[in-house]
C-alpha cells in the first residue's frame, strides 16, 4: 500500500509540473542569471494579468464553453478607467465602474449562449470585435493617459511579493472556493459534464451559465485593472493575443475542453509554464523569431504529454 501510494503520488502530479521544473533547470544551465530572486519576482509580476484571465477562462471552459473576448474586456477596462478619469471621475471609482462593465459584458455573453443555444466561440468572438471597437472609439485610436501614482501601488512589494501578485492570489482563492464550495461551482461542472442532471435537479441551467460568465467577467475586470497598473495608460489593443494564451494555460493545467473536468489550481501552473518559457527565452537572448517556435513547440509537447498520460490513466 505504501509503495503504491508513493507511485500514486508521482502519478497524481500533473505533467505540467515536470515541464515547469525541466524548463527552469534548462534555462538556469544556459544562463545562471536566470535563477536570481529578482528574475523570479519579474516572472510573477509579468504573469499577473494573464493569470487572472486564465482563471476566468478556466471557469468558462468548465462549462464546456470558450471565451475569445477576454482580451477585449481587458482592453476596455484599461481604456474606460482612464477615459473616465480624464472626464473627472476619481480613479478608484472609475476602476469600480470598469469592473462592473466587465461583469455586464459577461452577463450579456452568458445570456446569448444560454437563451439562444449559440456556440460560445462565436458569441465571444462577436463580442470581442464589438468591445474592441468601443475601446478604439473611446480612445480615438491611440492610447490615452492619465497621470497617477495609484498604478504604482501595485508594483510595490509587501512581504517579498509585489502587490499585484497578492491580488492574483486573492482571485485564485475566490475562484477556488467558488468552484469547490458553492452550489454555483457544482452547477458549473455539471453544465460541462451533464447539463440534463441540472434540469432534473430543478436548477435552471441558463441562469447558472449566466452566473458563470458574470463571475468570469468580474475576474477579467480585475485582470484589466492589473494590466492598467502595468502599462499605466488606456491601451485599446494591449491584451490582444492573451485570449489564446489563457486557453493554452487552462489546457496545460489539465482542464479538459469538454466534460467539465479540471481545476483552477492546474491553471496557475499552466500560466507559470508559459511565462517561464517566455522569460527564459528573453534572458537567454534567443532571437525573437525563434521564440515563437520554441514557445509553440514546448506548449504543444506539454499538451501531448498531458494527453498521453491521461489516456494511459484512463486505460489502467
Amino acid at each position: 500500500m505504501k509503495g503504491k501510494s508513493f507511485k500514486e503520488i508521482i502519478k497524481s502530479i500533473p505533467p505540467v509540473v515536470f515541464m515547469l521544473v525541466a524548463m527552469i533547470v534548462i534555462f538556469a544551465i544556459i544562463e545562471p542569471r536566470y535563477l536570481s530572486a529578482r528574475n523570479f519576482r519579474n516572472i510573477l509580476l509579468q504573469c499577473v494579468p494573464l493569470m487572472i484571465m486564465a482563471f476566468a477562462q478556466t471557469i468558462v471552459i468548465l462549462t464546456e464553453g470558450i471565451d475569445m473576448s477576454l482580451n477585449a474586456v481587458v482592453n476596455i477596462v484599461t481604456v474606460l478607467t482612464v477615459w473616465l478619469a480624464l472626464k473627472g471621475v476619481p480613479l478608484p471609482v472609475g476602476m469600480l465602474i470598469s469592473v462592473l462593465v466587465a461583469i455586464v459584458i459577461g452577463v450579456v455573453k452568458g445570456f446569448f449562449v444560454s437563451k439562444f443555444s449559440l456556440p460560445p466561440f462565436i458569441v465571444s468572438y462577436g463580442m470581442q470585435n464589438i468591445v474592441n471597437s468601443i475601446a478604439l472609439l473611446l480612445t480615438g485610436g491611440a492610447s490615452i493617459y492619465f497621470a497617477s501614482e495609484l498604478y504604482r501601488a501595485f508594483t510595490k512589494t509587501v512581504f517579498i511579493v509585489p502587490n499585484n501578485v497578492w491580488v492574483a492570489a486573492l482571485m485564485f482563492v475566490l475562484t477556488y472556493l467558488m468552484l469547490k464550495r458553492t452550489k454555483l461551482g457544482a452547477n458549473i461542472r455539471a453544465l460541462g459534464g451533464n447539463p440534463e442532471s441540472l434540469t432534473l435537479a430543478g436548477v435552471n441551467p441558463g441562469r447558472s451559465l449566466i452566473k458563470a460568465y458574470a463571475f468570469a467577467g468580474f475576474l477579467t475586470g480585475i485582470a484589466g485593472l492589473m494590466m492598467l497598473c502595468r502599462v499605466e495608460s488606456g491601451q485599446p489593443i494591449v491584451a490582444n493575443g492573451l485570449e489564446f494564451q489563457s486557453v493554452a494555460a487552462t489546457v496545460l493545467g489539465g482542464t479538459s475542453l469538454r466534460h467539465g473536468k479540471g481545476n483552477v489550481t492546474g491553471t496557475i501552473l499552466g500560466v507559470l509554464l508559459i511565462q517561464v518559457i517566455q522569460n527564459g527565452l528573453n534572458i537567454c537572448g534567443v532571437p525573437a523569431i525563434y521564440q515563437s517556435v520554441s514557445t509553440g513547440g514546448i506548449v504543444l509537447a506539454a499538451i501531448i504529454v498531458n494527453a498521453l498520460i491521461t489516456s494511459r490513466k484512463a486505460k489502467a
Binding site: M227, V231, Q235, V238, N240, G241, P287, I289, Q291
Partner: peptide, 11 residues
C-alpha cells in the same frame, strides 16, 4: 535583439 511574440504588444 528581441521582439514581443505578440506583434506590437507594449506590455
Amino acid at each position: 535583439c528581441q521582439a514581443p511574440s505578440t506583434a506590437d504588444s507594449v506590455e
